[in-house]
Design a protein around this nucleic acid. Structure first.
Lengths: 174, 174, 174, 174
DNA sequence: TTTT
DNA sequence: TTTT
């Protein structure tokens, strides 16, 4: 299935709560904003300077469900996925490119906060529908420009959150 | 030095010859355009569809020297580096972001073409100065828009190719 | 499915042809002996000393089929799998341990020899049955001590096994 | 320096406190016993069966110092190293082989327990000399059979513990 | 823009 | 925007 290798491995913390959306088929698609920290020695001052790198993560399928339910702002997480750059149109009609780390059936997500502390403190989210309501407030997110969206999927027709059947794979465009 | 993990592993082929530049200190900085191939089964047709992902690679230091000298368009290569997104200004004054895989002293580059075939066919490049001349023709490359450049380093002041001393680390902005 | 991470990534060359066997169900199980090369600077002499590390690889399923058919002694290959140590009984009744890199449905194998050169020179093996005959000679292999076997699977259609060529395995020290 | 790739990435928990030793030169060498958990679906019963894999980790240099000082039984940790199999002689004079994950200057170790909970609860170890005394009690460890040793380095000549020179960074470099 |  |  692959004549190359395209692998990303990250450990970092979430900058915000996960952004959960659903495909028309009811499959979860979760966006994460992940910070990885590094520090390097400044050549001028000789001091250790912290440097944060931010990564856009997109999870699909089962791992997206878990991420959306259990991860929160501040959560520490291990991510294994692949690099993907997608093109979108800016408001000026010009092409823009956004690179994301895609975690699908071939990837992995591991929560690294032990025993519920860490970022999992806002009360345990219960069922899926609530999740959707809590994490993907339509009004707010739907104004986001393309770089905040992940292509072909949209949000659940709110209020009518249509029985999430798990026929995944039927609508993800890759 | 790092309180997180930020690792990328790629195996693919170069879309063009490497783009070699030099910092004012004479350190090589090489840009690669790397394709990784994957194929997935189309849900509609059931057919296997090939899909190519393109990656921007930036190498620094010793590994950059080697890449610039021995890699060519078509070369198969293993890359281990880290993700880095840098901001630049579009001609319209707006912010743009480009994500690259940075290979520095902590990364790795492995040529995977065996026995000189593959992309290594244009004759063995000799010394470093010539390399610079061959691979980083100033007039051509300097017109490249920001996404084609890697930030703070510029090209060798040609003709005066300043004694490539290996005092690396003195000018790389991270 | 996993509350940890256990990942091995190797690029190296095969020390011998693959050793293909079959489970009672007819599933391929392939053993590889993979060399990864490294060199380090000797502190005494200051010289660059080459050092080869040998790895035992066990492949299951589809990837095993491909490996058995297309890899040969000398082939360069990318392996992604997981570490697994299994216990077996020495002839003296004592416990022995062998660590292997297991490549199953979650792993990956990529052939890195381009255009059929490399180790792929003994003529293209054809169908699976023949493969079985050539690579998994029952009579000879079944005498191998435990470290040469990979646990619960046994050999194919015994009794009719034709010329067993691949009896290396006898001098590999693990 | 390397014409191959030999990389291991693990996330798991320590089965015991680290075993810290020192080379004659006073360099720390730390052994860890790391468990990675996985679960698989039993084909017979259809049940999810947990499975623990144990790994021998050997750390050298600075990362060894940190591991010896801050890791404890139960600690969750990220390990990046390389596979290495070393030969030793059993009491019966026969060759034995032990495979370890070696973490040296090219590797990485990340503690994943947040805020001092996790396994770091036996009181904060203070200076290095005490560490040595606490973690590498010569009398106890020296009875360990070869698989418990890592080759060329020995234990601190007791009583004469030679003032660990390696005053690299300022204690806590992360 | 690469490669098979 | 996270974390220590």
């Amino acid at each position: 299935m692959a004549r190359g290798v395209n692998k990303v491995i990250l450990i970092g913390n979430l900058g915000q709560d996960p952004d959960t959306r659903y495909t028309p088929n009811g499959n979860a698609v979760v966006n994460l904003n992940l910070a990885t920290d590094e520090s390097y020695k400044d050549r001028q001052t000789g001091q250790l300077v912290p440097k944060t790198e931010w990564h856009r993560i997109v999870l699909f399928g089962k791992v997206a469900e878990v991420a959306g339910q259990y991860l929160r702002k501040g959560s520490k997480v291990y991510i294994e996925g692949k690099l993907q750059t997608r093109k979108w149109q800016g408001q000026d009609g010009q092409d823009r490119y956004t690179t994301e780390v895609v975690v699908d059936i071939n990837g992995q997500m591991q929560m690294l906060d032990s025993r519920g502390e860490g970022g999992m403190n806002q009360g345990a989210p219960a069922g899926r529908p609530q999740q959707s309501g809590n994490n993907a407030p339509a009004g707010q997110q739907s104004n986001n420009p393309p770089p905040q969206q992940s292509g072909g999927y949209s949000q659940p027709s709110q209020g009518s959150m249509p029985e999430p059947v798990d026929d995944f794979d039927d609508d993800i465009p890759f």
